[in-house]
Write a protein that binds this DNA or RNA. Structure first.
Length: 837
DNA sequence: GCAAGGTC
């Protein structure tokens, strides 16, 4: 019997720290073993893993994609190897003389598997210590204490279910990914991937695009008129009963719309024949799980990735609970009153939190999803002070706080008023208006993220006559279905049962990284269509949600002990073998198809100088340009703007047959249009001379001029270019003109930019040199804060340390820089640098 | 260098 300490193993460091704190009553000390935190007290040690610390893979002899037929991966053995060496080593060291082991990983299937992985690592070095498993769904005093007082055993069947998933995913994903990549000869960074989750997600996007392509718009008309009671006017819309006796507003026949319009235009009054008042209760929202949090964050302008990244930071700092959860029901031991009390001292939302304390009875809402993984996302009773968070972090934190406030607030009440008035005519056209008024704001008072816009319709009574005026007929067209936005995509994935709370947003990012989708909302590339088409023909399972549904069933059977891991994986192997029978026969055709799709994504249109196509290429310095596919026989090129990543639009230029180019650059995204038109326009636009060049004006007589570049950009540069390379940036858009205000310092006139859009104010740019100086100063001030995790205060500290822009941040040596800044470690610096890339 | 799932 070993006599060493008892070892508690959790899924992550954060959980280890909090559990140690609870079990030790705050007396635990933190120590580091092999660079990993270990919490010690009495005869106990507690260590946090980092999720899976071992991973499945094929043996090394399968590593070379060219040497191995992808089909061989199906029967290859699957090994488990440590992926987090330092944690595995620390775990082994602590386990060696432990007298007892307690597995305290997350209470879900993956947590059971992570627990079993830890168990196996422990058993490698210690085969006698008893191993217990504790389960709790939130790290609170009561739950943790109870779980440790009544430990259970590891559920090896549940863990085996997770292992079956790992093996099936690896074998299908790796073999098919290699097959597609090899057949299209895409081996480097541009390999072509498929998988059980990314496949159906991509198909979802491609299918929607197919619907959009196939969409045939239909014309219809809608009619409106203003109704007036006394001096109160409101808009009403024409409607009729269709053949199913349901109310319809769209008129599909123009003649009929005209006829109705004629009647409405001629009428001067309508008689009210229906007034219906209704009170509607608008219930407060359910607590946040990951998907609903992402959806709400997207409503205030955050991408799924960004929202999760901020939430993770807020969690690590202790301000919110764990952000990866499926649960929408608060645990019993959440005391809303205590939390409101704590939040009531916070900035921005303190008064709102306090106002909710007045209620006699506080009963939080609950959603449909109740799981054991973690509690719904809510704020903790630890409040950040204003300088602790960046502006974005505050915004997201406030969203989480206000969502919690909303879940304990009252329902809102709306009053709806529906009025129908009919014109006295043979056609009897009816008009309706729907008014709504927020009578009791309820939760809206603390949760301003949902619309509370009202529509005023005056109090009218049946039989009353209203004045009718201003009849309008609007010609419209049915619209194609909309593309999925990121948050809608995540919601749909959740509904389909693919991916998990912690991975769905990453899957979308992966589709971007693989060149399958572009822009926001994401739009599929030709390559994506090619991959989905190829998969549909030969490996339909990999793009179908059925694969996950079947796997879930199989996993449940394994967990119940009704099936074994081997049975499930062997059956999957056979299925995959059959898929490969079809694939091998069509290898050539499939490769051709994928290569054509890849080329289509880059093809701009016919080369004006030869029979080949113009394609988008990347020069050695990383910039994009348009070049002829016939190179080196044909050296024709066109430049592209220097900012952003080019994508091709469906529209083509009528003069040159070239696709319009759009430059994706986040908020600075813009349409460049036909690159040949842009180049020609630049050749035609005369330079506008501004004044003497500050570099060579005195000696050589060089002058500064506003020049349009063939890449579509514009700059102020010396007329002696390339002998003099002096230049200043200029905005791409708008008409530039000179003003008569002269800059004394630089002897240059001011520049004004005017816009075609008459509503847009001209931009008084002033002296171009002064303007650029101010711009640079602003950049130096703000630029660092564009990096995730760097706020105003940190930017100050970085500048004190001599790092004043992103370029120098990227060049900095992490250890050296970390030493110069209080509270910042080299890993943080490395994170910044990664984000800056 | 492949997947998907944890986590940072």
């Amino acid at each position: 019997m070993k006599r060493g300490p008892e070892l508690i193993i959790t899924e992550k460091d954060n959980a280890a720290r909090r559990i140690a704190d609870i079990l030790s009553d705050g007396s635990a000390d933190a120590d580091r073993v092999n660079g990993v935190n270990v919490y010690k007290w009495g005869g106990k040690r507690c260590i946090g893993l980092s999720g899976h610390v071992v991973g499945v893979d094929f043996p090394p002899e399968y590593d070379d994609w060219r040497d191995v037929e992808p089909v061989e991966l199906i029967s290859a053995e699957v090994e488990k190897r440590p992926t987090q060496e330092n944690i595995v080593a620390a775990l082994r060291r602590l386990a060696r003389n432990a007298s007892r082991i307690v597995i305290a990983t997350d209470y879900d299937r993956e947590g059971e598997l992570i627990g079993k992985e830890a168990y196996e690592l422990v058993r490698d070095v210690n085969d006698e210590a008893p191993v217990d498993r504790v389960r709790f769904s939130s790290i609170t005093d009561r739950e943790v204490t109870e779980a440790f007082a009544d430990p259970d055993d590891l559920d090896f069947d549940l863990a085996a279910a997770g292992e079956a998933r790992q093996i099936v995913d690896l074998m299908w994903g790796a073999s098919l990914t290699r097959f597609l990549s090899l057949s299209a000869r895409q081996l480097g960074d541009d390999f072509i991937s498929v998988g059980r989750v990314q496949g159906p997600t991509l198909k979802l996007i491609v299918d929607r695009e197919r619907e959009i392509d196939a969409f045939d718009p239909e014309d219809y008309w809608e009619l409106f008129a203003d109704l007036t009671k006394a001096d109160e006017t409101f808009e009403a819309q024409y409607f009729y009963l269709d053949e199913d006796d349901t109310e319809a507003e769209r008129v599909w026949d123009e003649d009929r719309a005209d006829a109705v319009h004629d009647v409405l235009a001629a009428a001067e009054a309508a008689t009210v024949d229906e007034v219906r008042r209704r009170t509607r209760t608008d219930d407060p929202p359910a607590p946040f799980n990951t998907t609903q949090f992402i959806r709400a964050a997207s409503g205030i302008g955050y991408s799924a990735q960004r929202a999760m990244s901020i939430a993770e930071d807020l969690y690590t700092a202790g301000y919110i609970t764990y952000p990866r959860t499926d649960n929408t029901v608060y645990p019993d031991d959440l005391e809303p009153r205590d939390l409101l009390d704590a939040l009531s001292s916070g900035p921005r939302f303190g008064d709102d939190a306090a106002s909710l304390l007045d209620a006699d009875d506080i009963e939080p809402t609950a959603g449909d999803e109740e799981t054991t993984d973690h509690p719904p996302i809510h704020p903790t009773d630890e409040l950040p002070s204003p300088s602790d968070l960046s502006e974005d972090e505050w915004e997201v934190y406030e969203l989480v706080v206000r969502r919690f406030l909303a879940t304990v607030a009252d329902a809102a009440t709306w009053e709806h008023l529906r009025v129908v008035a009919t014109v006295d005519d043979a056609m009897d056209p009816s008009l309706k208006a729907n008014g709504k008024r927020l009578v009791n704001p309820g939760y809206h008072a603390v949760y301003p993220y949902r619309s509370t816009s009202e529509n005023y319709v005056p109090d009218v009574t049946e039989g009353e006559t209203l004045a009718l005026a201003d009849a309008q007929m609007a010609a419209k067209q049915t619209q194609p279905p909309r593309r999925y936005g990121q948050s809608r995509l995540i919601e749909t994935m959740e509904k389909m049962g693919i991916g998990t709370k912690a991975t769905r947003h990453d899957v979308i990012q992966k589709l971007y990284d693989r060149g399958y989708i572009e822009g926001d909302p994401p739009r599929p590339t030709r390559l994506a269509r090619g991959v989905v088409e190829a998969s549909e023909e030969f490996a339909d399972r990999i793009v179908s949600e059925e694969m996950t549904a079947q796997l879930e069933e199989d996993m449940e059977a394994i967990a119940r002990g009704e099936a074994t891991l081997d049975e499930v994986t062997d059956e999957s192997r056979e299925m995959l073998e059959r898929v490969f029978d079809g694939l091998m026969e069509s290898r050539e055709a499939l490769g051709d198809h994928l290569r054509k799709s890849l080329k289509a994504d880059k093809t701009v249109g016919p080369c004006p100088e030869c029979d080949e196509d113009l394609v988008i290429r990347r020069s050695r310095n990383g910039s994009y340009f348009v070049g002829c596919d016939g190179y080196p026989d044909c050296e024709y090129t066109l430049p592209l703007p220097s900012t952003g990543k080019p994508i091709l639009l469906d529209e083509t230029c009528p003069d040159h047959g070239l696709s319009d180019v759009k430059m994706l650059a986040g908020r600075k995204t813009f349409v460049h249009g036909c690159p040949l038109c842009a180049a020609e326009a630049a050749d035609e636009e005369p330079d506008l001379v501004v004044g003497p060049c500050p570099e060579c004006g005195d000696e050589e007589g060089g002058e500064l001029a506003i020049k349009r570049l063939r890449s579509g950009g514009r700059l102020v540069g010396c007329t002696r270019y390339p002998d003099c390379e002096y230049s200043l940036p200029m905005p791409r858009r708008g008409e530039a003109e000179l003003t008569d205000e002269t800059c004394e310092e630089h002897d240059l006139p001011g520049i004004r930019i005017t816009y075609e859009d008459a509503d847009r104010e001209p931009w008084e740019l002033g002296c171009p040199i002064c303007n650029y100086r101010e711009y640079q100063a602003r950049q130096a001030g703000d630029e660092l804060e564009t990096v995730d995790g760097i706020g105003e205060k940190t930017a100050e500290k970085l500048k004190d340390a001599g790092v004043d822009d992103v370029a120098s941040l990227k060049d900095a040596e992490p250890d050296t820089l970390a030493d110069q800044i209080d509270g910042v470690g080299p890993d943080t610096v490395r994170n910044w640098q990664a984000d800056a890339d």
